[in-house]
Design a protein around this nucleic acid. Structure first.
Lengths: 135, 135
DNA sequence: ACAATTATACGAACAGTTTCGTAAAAGGAA
DNA sequence: TTCCTTTTACGAAACTGTTCGTATAATTGT
């Protein structure tokens, strides 16, 4: 092994958009990523290319150069990234109060009964765990 | 009235840190804000001053120039800002799924029984409301 | 009144991000 | 082969956000 042990970098907004595309599509060529971006916002092809190259340097994506069109792939999982960003967001915006955030998130948006049930289930589990923390 | 009807701007990270200080302390002089910042991270006085001036231009803060040391005050409420930022964060990071965010937030951090109770109460209220949406 | 301190204003340097023009290499079709 | 298309690589411009040096004005103390 030579390098890139941990890529604990905070992706920028645009980088996150690209990661979303990669998470949803799996390995993609620059062309595919660019097409996806253009569905939302006009973006030059070399702009997308450059971004992917930079993300590669940062270790956010890996790439296969086997075929002429390189295949880019997310090097970080969606959940890890969400967790990292959520931690940061919670601290900077809600001063660490998960509860305030949860209350706002549930209050602001319409949540389906099915989703509410899932949350209730999690709450029950959290309460059970807290009664026997270290088994 | 002349201007500044709505300041719907997304504060930068540093601006948010300053807003937090203003929300916690109420109207502050540059000196006070700078002292607070220095408790966390060394920051030059004129750096703080410049930031506050820019935030003033953007309409994020108001200022009173009555005394020589101007008094700066948040022009946006903490809750409005949290709501705005949460909406954006939810879309960019969790693709709009409030549930996924809530599950992560509750799962990642230790939440007290009291807080869990508050959330359960909110869930009950949400379920009640959904049965009679428009009274 | 004078010096020292403290404030504001302003502009410029710096760093990071995003965009794009242009060149060069690779491949495919005529 | 030669031409056309697609791709990568590279560098520089355009932006944004942050930091700070310096000038100037107001205030205080001696």
């Amino acid at each position: 092994m030579t390098d890139a042990p941990t890529p604990p970098q905070k992706p920028t907004d645009t980088e996150l958009e690209i990661l979303q595309i990669l998470w949803q599509h799996g390995p993609c060529t620059v062309r595919v990523v660019n097409d996806e971006q253009n569905k939302v916002k006009e973006t030059g092809y070399t702009t997308t290319l450059k971004l992917l190259q930079i993300m590669h340097e940062k270790g956010l994506v890996t790439r296969s150069e086997e075929s002429r069109s390189h295949l880019y792939q997310a090097a970080v999982t969606e959940e890890d990234t969400q967790k990292r960003l959520l931690d940061r967001f919670l601290d900077t915006t809600f001063r660490g109060s998960a509860m305030k955030l949860v209350m706002q998130a549930l209050g602001n948006r319409r949540t389906s009964q099915d989703e509410l049930d899932q949350i209730k289930q999690l709450l029950k589990k959290l309460e059970d765990d807290s009664s026997k923390p270290t088994p």
